[in-house]
């Protein structure tokens, strides 16, 4: 459904999207994660053909976003982040206007508008002026608009931003239900949303893709083992590291003599019993032993930390020095 190859986008000297490549298959629900300013919106705008890429190729539903932009637009439903609406129109009137712009057949129009009003739970406000709607309802009008022409692909830019927790829940439920009929690409900076409804996550950071994995794969990733041990730090650490299958150990003091340890292990092993055995052999007291699957948050932090490292090394990585550009 979406194929992106080496797409970059410069705004003047600022590199907003840096050679990203990914693919989304039909029927997937993909979460686009990233901090503010990471390049999510820009990437989405390129996919919706609103902005052109500086370089690279992107295809949506088999059409090139640059050269076949009208075909692409017929196949996507886009919900922009701020949901701009014409304040003087009424909900139904607006949807009818949008349906006409999007070539919804005249005979199906009334029925289709009824359907999207139902899906987006807008029935009770169908006669209200858009300007008088609350943020939550505006978001839903945007969603109804994105759905009205039965697009193959839904691109939702932060569909839950500015909503209250209950509305977020409702919106996520709706998106999950839509996932059975449409391919969905949606962006967010809330991790739990992505965990809740996506099959796949793409973490984008400073314009680059930091991670692109199925959530089910993430869950199988090597777990962390958490220990709290009373004993000399260095020795304990040594013992832990020297165990087979351990990759790294981080220690943190909790109390006098008591430390917590985070043991990162290799994939596919549960080292809890082995570690406990080795620790108790040395006579140290173990107060806690736990295993934690690596969560999305850990991956997200990993990606963020990685790029932060690059920040401190080479200055703001996203800005091309002026000399380099003029050369």
């Amino acid at each position: 459904m979406i194929e992106v190859q080496n797409v970059s986008k410069y705004f003047g000297p600022v590199l907003a999207v840096d050679r990203i490549s990914f693919q989304v298959a039909k029927g997937e629900i993909v979460g686009f994660l990233g901090q503010n300013g990471a390049g999510k919106t820009t990437a989405m705008r390129i996919l919706t053909t609103y902005l052109p890429a500086t370089s690279g190729v992107a295809r949506v539903a088999g059409f090139d976003v640059m050269n076949q932009s009208l075909d692409v637009r017929r196949h996507i439903g886009f919900l922009p982040e701020s949901v701009p609406l014409y304040p003087e129109m009424r909900v139904e009137e607006y949807l009818s206007y949008r349906a006409k712009l999007k070539d919804v057949d005249r005979k199906e129009r009334v029925k289709r508008i009824d359907e999207v009003l139902e899906i987006a739970r807008l029935r009770e406000v169908r006669r209200r002026l858009l300007g008088t709607l609350s943020k939550g309802y505006r978001q839903r009008v945007g969603l109804a608009d994105a759905l009205v022409h039965k697009p193959d692909l839904l691109i939702l830019d932060e569909p839950t931003s500015g909503l209250d927790p209950i509305q977020i829940g409702e919106t996520l439920k709706t998106i999950r239900e839509l996932g059975s009929k449409h391919t969905v690409l949606f962006s967010s900076h809330y991790l739990f949303e992505v965990e809740e409804i996506c099959q796949r996550v793409i973490i984008i950071d400073h314009g680059r893709i930091g991670l692109d994995k199925k959530l089910s794969e993430l869950e199988n990733d090597a777990p962390l083992i958490l220990l709290e041990i009373r004993g000399p730090v260095d020795q304990v650490k040594n013992v832990l590291v020297s165990t087979d299958g351990v990759e790294a150990v981080a220690a943190k003091a909790i109390d006098d003599g008591l430390h917590s340890y985070e043991v990162r292990t290799e994939k596919g092993q549960d080292l809890r019993e082995k570690l406990l055995e080795r620790v108790s052999k040395n006579g140290w007291a173990v107060r806690k032993l736990d295993i934690r699957k690596r969560q999305l948050q850990d991956h997200f932090m990993d990606v963020a930390m990685r790029s932060q490292g690059s920040f401190s090394r080479g200055g703001p990585a996203n800005i091309v020095p002026a000399e380099a550009r003029s050369a």
């Binding site: 919706t48 637009r73 886009f78 922009p80 701009p84 712009l101």
Partner: peptide
């Protein structure tokens, strides 16, 4: 932006 992401 909304206008130009419709096929117009």
């Amino acid at each position: 932006e909304v206008l130009f992401t419709a096929p117009v």
